[in-house]
């Protein structure tokens, strides 16, 4: 009897430990980021770090202004959103509401496959096919631009958006559809006015998670955006994102040095951005459940 209680106790604790493990790890990562990155703010005030226009980390004296990088990330992400959100939501509606069963299964499998393509492969394809195409289309000196990055990333956001939005649409109770159809609504009126409306929180969450993936993506963007740390004036210019900066420069820094700390500070900024985006997505996902 006693032994059984001990066993129960041990099992409970083990499950509890595994449960909070992810939280502990996230907390440790954040603490590590802060520890390594905060020292840059002794030298560069936060407002300068965030809003100064020049990122010259290895000139003398070095300049650590990440505004061009933030704008690069925002531009690429916004572009990816403009492309992937309408297409993603439309294909989710098509798969959930309109497609016959067989088409639906083929499409769903295809979208899962799209999610499984490694980002370096997508980046590679973007670099050798999309880049030259954009270059010729707009008569540019280089095809590696923010637009190329946006298109590439749109492909990576799409699977997330489609599969989560499709779940949300499928979860809309049949009785709402029946009510609308019985009132004489057409298929489109039912889908758009009632089903999409009921699934809206889930669709917003899908979009936020897709965008979260885009902001954090590194490899593909590094390969197709041209990596010029300049303030972009148009979507047809090369840009450099926050993530690409860290990935490209970390290998060249001296551990504990200023540049090293600045890159960790970029990590903190990224962490906060994705945390906020996931937070918003979470709020909306919970709304759907209610």
């Amino acid at each position: 009897m006693h032994l059984r209680k001990v066993k129960e106790f041990i099992i409970e604790r083990m499950i509890f430990l595994s449960g909070i493990m992810s939280i502990i790890i996230v907390a440790l990562i954040f603490i590590f980021l802060l520890k390594e990155g905060l020292s840059i703010f002794w030298r560069v005030p936060i407002s300068d770090f965030l809003f100064a226009r020049n990122w010259y980390p290895i000139s003398d004296p070095p300049q650590f202004g990440i505004l061009p990088l933030i704008l690069g990330s925002i531009l690429v992400t916004a572009g990816a959103g403009v492309i992937s959100i309408p297409i993603g939501i439309a294909s989710a509606l098509f798969i959930a509401e309109i497609a016959p069963r067989k088409t639906k299964e083929v499409l769903k499998a295809g979208i899962e496959l799209l999610a499984a393509i490694p980002s370096v492969v997508i980046g590679f394809i973007g670099m050798v096919t999309l880049g030259p195409f954009i270059k010729d289309l707009f008569h540019l000196s280089t095809g590696l631009t923010a637009l190329s990055g946006s298109i590439t990333l749109a492909f990576m956001a799409m699977p997330t958006i489609v599969s989560i939005a499709e779940d949300a649409i499928t979860a809309v109770p049949r009785q709402y559809r029946d009510a609308a159809i019985a009132m004489g609504a057409t298929k489109w009126q039912t889908t758009w006015r009632i089903v999409a409306h009921a699934a809206r929180p889930g669709m917003v969450a899908a979009v936020m998670l897709g965008i979260g993936r885009v902001i954090g993506e590194t490899m593909a963007v590094m390969m197709v955006t041209g990596n010029a740390a300049l303030i972009p004036h148009s979507i047809l210019q090369p840009v450099r994102t926050l993530t690409a900066t860290v990935a490209a420069e970390m290998g060249e820094t001296v551990q504990g040095g200023e540049h090293y700390a600045a890159l960790f500070a970029i990590g903190i900024v990224l962490f906060i951005i994705t945390f906020l985006i996931n937070g918003v997505a979470d709020i909306y996902l919970h709304k759907t459940k209610k």
Binding site: D178, A182, M183
Partner: peptide
Amino acid sequence: LRQKVGMVFQRPNPFPLSVYENITFG
């Protein structure tokens, strides 16, 4: 046909909209 022949279901199934919009939908 469905405008002239309305239907009320077994479980109340108002749309997840406001009271007002539930009526104006039709």
